[in-house]
Amino acid sequence: MANFGDHLRELGALDRLASMDTPIHRLDPRAKVLATLLFILMVASFGRYEVSGLLPFALFPVILGTLGEVPWGLVGKRVLMVLPFALVLGILNPFLDRSQVAFGSWTLSAGWLSFASILLRFALCVGASVILIATTSMDGVCMALERLGLPRVFTLQIALLYRYVFVLLEETLRITRARELRANGRPLLLSEYGSLAGSLFLRTWERARRVHVAMLSRGFEGEFHGASPPHFRSKDAAFLMGWGAVLVVLRLVNLPHLLESLLKGVAS
């Protein structure tokens, strides 16, 4: 249960990062969410064996991460966290897909290419998502999602969840610590689980009731009135259009190949 505190700290760390002030943080969340979605879509659209075409896409996370001052350790950690999953799903490819591909003088099964492709996709997609959340406040993300057409009731859910996840993780941490002190390292049994999770649930329930009362006391009548969203400035539009163009071009033009032939041209 050590990962409890870890999760809490990580959430806190990301939240602190998101409240920094850099050119990337100052962009409209809608622009960032859309650009990231487009990025992931473009990466996903490559065929199974694509490796070189994916490489230039690293530009997106690298530029955003650098300008947004996201610590690379954090991004790396996140990528490493999902890596086992990627390995499990991709590791069979080299054995299942044995069609041979010549690599100069030696050959290689095409499965290795699709395996590398999966790993690269994982790294790119996870990196881009982490950088998005490290440069955008949760509030901003909710606002963006709402503007993109998700129901208000739902974005409100997300905002409340995010608000109380810190409170509840701490509460859970207290409950489990109290148990561990008496348990002498004995793992949690299913029979105890019911009452442990159950009492956590009852506390949650009571808290929800009190939160509701607090809302009612301040004139809540079932309708949430958020702040009117900030204007989508020309800067934001430029960011979105610029990246949109770059990503589409990178999708259409295989940059490594282009460079390679340039190299050859220079050499000959």
Partner: peptide, 26 residues
């Protein structure tokens, strides 16, 4: 105006500003 026992119950929005603005907006 009611101030509750546990401020965590009363501060349910994402920032202090939003929280304080909740009532006037309603």
């Amino acid at each position: 105006g009611m101030v509750f026992q546990d401020p965590d119950d009363q501060l349910f929005m994402s920032t202090v500003f939003e929280d304080v603005a909740f009532g006037p907006r309603n």
